[in-house]
Design a protein around this nucleic acid. Structure first.
Lengths: 241, 241
DNA sequence: CGAGGATTTGAGCTGGATCAAAATAGGTGG
DNA sequence: CCACCTATTTTGATCCAGCTCAAATCCTCG
């Protein structure tokens, strides 16, 4: 079992040996999912939470007439549905955006952590609060930013989040984004046609290239400026919680 | 000190006597805020969290060029910044949308709760997860719904949330919404001019009236249908957490 | 090689933005 | 109670970012 979760949580606060041991024993079982398959179904009542090990997943809601909004993207090291532990019922679905590998944490074990490990509980709580902070940032983007700004902003966010768990190529300022333009549009609240045109504009300006599954950011500070990106909402630094 | 917090949390799970006692002792100090004043500043590191007793507040972010997005609205009984307890730093501001009265809960007391009251901790965690669920729902609305649908959806949401803490007039299907059309636009991601026109359309169709500070919903089921409103994301029912 | 999905291009349309001004509604001091 | 001041709501006219619909091209993989 990988140390991904320990690595991720260690970005947020120092963990002691016992906490590390508990986390390592938390998710023994792994599963795999095909691209486009449902990882968690809307309306279900999960008995375990799912840690993403490889690939990317998205939380989404579909309206009666087929319009879809993807409300978040999860990267390796993220719990895709830790919130289902206190919430009990899933108010949205989770889809595998690419082939995925996951590990499962039984709610019974999470319950035991909340009963005996106050500090670890606060750190787990924190991860769900960072999810919420990302939701707020996406709201700002979708509500008040242009398609170009929004898209650049998401590329910046993913570079930071993937970097925190060691999934970027810092040499080339690049990372793997194995999703379609249509799915990107469902995150940004624009159509696939407009995704394509906006992407061409980003490429034309030399801000982003996304060829095959690889996103490259040739000029980070320019992209940050155009996208008004400020990573503080990601809270990616260790401090006592 | 009011029982608002106890009433609010009791909507989510049964509380025992000790928990009720702890909650009653949690927020002795009250404060008042003028309309339009900052309740919490972006970038600050609060030493206490703020429970809203009267009035309404909004979490918001302002972009460099002045565009503003309000990412949530809080109603009496809501913690406006409980997330600042594990998060430490505020990544957004909180503004009083109307004259407000608040009560403050020192983070030191919240820390003690997490150390000694696992169940109460889970319920507090839960309230922040419901905030996140509301963020997701707003994302769906802003990303994929028309201005008319979005506005109707928000009026429905507020009716449910205010009803849970006893702040609606069930007789007349109405409640007090003491904000401006411009502020509503900053929640929905549209301009104040378009808020006005959308509102006229809702009134013309007999779905909502908003005269002075009072919102009335003459025909609930019609509005629910037009707005595609499904309250399950609010998780407003008691079950063991 | 063929098929189905993904990307790209084109043409025309529209929901909501922008800009500007008029009408109203509170609130305040005399 | 009135006159005034300022913020808010409302209306009008014009514009444009992003949508829709449709077709072409390009991948990828069996």
């Amino acid at each position: 079992m990988s140390d991904l979760l320990v690595r991720k949580l260690s970005c947020l606060d120092k963990l002691n040996e016992e906490e590390v041991r508990i986390l390592r024993e938390l998710t023994p079982q792994t599963r795999t999912f095909d691209a486009r398959s449902d990882v968690v179904e809307q309306g279900s009542r999960p008995t375990h939470s799912t840690l993403l090990l490889e690939g990317m997943t998205g939380r989404y809601r579909i309206l009666a007439d087929g319009r879809r909004q993807i409300t978040s993207i999860d990267v390796p090291g993220d719990f895709v549905d830790l919130h289902s532990f206190p919430l009990k019922t899933m108010d949205h679905g989770v889809i595998a955006l690419s082939p995925c590998k996951t590990a499962t944490a039984p709610h019974a074990d999470l319950l035991r952590i909340t009963e005996t490990q106050p500090h670890l509980t606060r750190v787990l709580w924190l991860t769900t609060l960072i999810d919420a902070a990302i939701h707020r940032e996406w709201l700002v983007a979708v509500g008040r930013m242009s398609a170009l700004e929004r898209m650049g902003h998401l590329f910046c966010e993913l570079y930071c989040r993937l970097g925190a768990v060691g999934f970027t190529d810092r040499e080339n300022r690049s990372y793997t984004l194995p999703i379609t333009q249509g799915e990107l549009g469902d995150m940004l609240g624009i159509t696939n046609v407009h995704v394509n045109r906006t992407l061409q504009e980003l490429r034309r300006r030399g801000l982003v290239s996304w060829r095959g599954p690889t996103v490259t950011i040739p000029n980070w500070s320019n992209l940050v400026e155009v996208s008004r990106f400020d990573p503080s909402y990601l809270h990616l630094h260790s401090e006592p919680r």
